[in-house]
């Protein structure tokens, strides 16, 4: 049986207390929300924190508040199930409901939180392995070693950002509030991510993600498509989040963000740019899809061959756009085909 390493567990009741505890314990402590990402990693000895600060008892972090017209606030401890089934989310931010509803399995969505999903560790099939396996292959720089096994000449880690909701939240223009013992700051979620497989979050270790704020939804339409081998369990090996604001049938604003193609969600700006002021014709869609595939640079460290994931980027972007344009292409577009 795979077991957790020993730790001390702290269960603060307020964000302030949590922030204080994290400040006190410094690098020894880690935050745990649903634990669905952290515990498997701990069992494989990717992390052996001395102290866990569990956020489960902090009621202010749980639940969805506000309205689509003024903007929604998602408590980071809201489960993925709750996010995916929330009526307001499903109606006005459908891509988010879709993404949350496509994470892993039903059981896992009952446990995993949206905050944990935003902060989920990057993945690599040289890294998500037991201690013994990693020892056998000689460890890599993300944990216990000093080279990259995917790109041996590289001085950095290319582990893959594998969150389903992160690209969607980015495309929706979400902001996050980070709280620590030193105070709090609110920043666009796009600035949370760094292009580094190891230090993938641009936040301090002791900063708690305390709120996720969605801007008003008016006029925006969104889609999320996910590539993976099975309809359940599997992480995305490509995620495509598209958010468009339409002025009649003309695109007035567009954001396309790709998940699972790099160490952070990647915004496909030129592709989005190309749509602005356009009607969603086949030609416009094809052009945007071609442009979007540009920034996708998958490496061979997840399921599916990387050339295939790259190829699918085009297809998925086109499908997401077609679906938003109401063009029937025979494929069910809210779910991954």
């Amino acid at each position: 049986m795979m077991r957790l390493p020993p730790f001390t567990y702290l269960a603060p009741k307020t964000v302030a207390d949590a922030a204080r505890l994290l400040g006190e314990h410094g690098a020894d402590a880690m935050i745990v929300a649903g634990g669905t990402d952290l515990y498997p990693n701990m069992k494989r000895r990717q992390f052996e924190p001395k102290v866990l600060v569990g956020l489960g008892a902090i009621s202010e972090l749980r639940g969805v508040r506000g309205s689509a017209s003024r903007g929604l606030s998602l408590g980071p401890m809201t489960t993925l199930t709750a996010v995916s089934q929330h009526a307001e989310v499903a109606r006005h931010y459908p891509a988010l409901a879709t993404a949350a509803g496509l994470v892993s399995s039903p059981q896992l969505r009952n446990m995993g939180t949206i905050g944990g999903n935003v902060c989920v560790d990057t993945r690599c099939n040289y890294y998500n392995q037991s201690y013994e396996w990693r020892k056998a292959i000689g460890f890599c720089m993300k944990k216990d070693g000093d080279i990259c096994l995917v790109a041996p000449g590289s001085s950095r880690c290319w582990a893959v950002s594998s969150s389903d909701t992160a690209p969607v939240l980015w495309s929706l223009g979400a902001h996050i509030r980070l709280t620590s013992a030193d105070g709090e700051r609110t920043v666009p979620i796009a600035t949370l991510y760094r292009d580094d497989g190891i230090d993938y979050l641009a936040k301090r270790h002791d900063e708690i993600l305390a709120d996720i704020v969605l801007p008003p939804a008016d006029g925006w339409r969104s889609r999320y498509l996910k590539l993976r081998r099975r309809g359940s369990f599997d992480f995305p090996v490509l995620g495509v989040a598209v958010n468009l604001r339409m002025d009649a049938d003309v695109v007035s604003e567009a954001r396309i963000v790709l998940g699972a193609v790099a160490s952070l969600p990647r915004e496909a700006k030129p592709a989005a740019e190309s749509l602005r002021g356009q009607r969603l014709t086949e030609e416009a869609i094809t052009r945007a899809a071609d442009l979007a595939a540009g920034p996708a640079k998958p490496l061979d460290n997840t399921d599916y061959a990387h050339f295939y994931r790259k190829k699918m980027t085009r297809v998925f972007v086109a499908r997401a756009l077609r679906s938003l344009a109401g063009l029937d292409d025979g494929v069910d577009s809210t779910e991954a085909p």
Binding site: M2, Y9, A11, G34, G35, T36, Y39, P40, G54, G56, P106, Q107, L108, N110, M111
Partner: peptide, 11 residues
Amino acid sequence: PVLSCLALPVA
């Protein structure tokens, strides 16, 4: 339904 292998009793 939750996964007991990833649930901590204290929580």
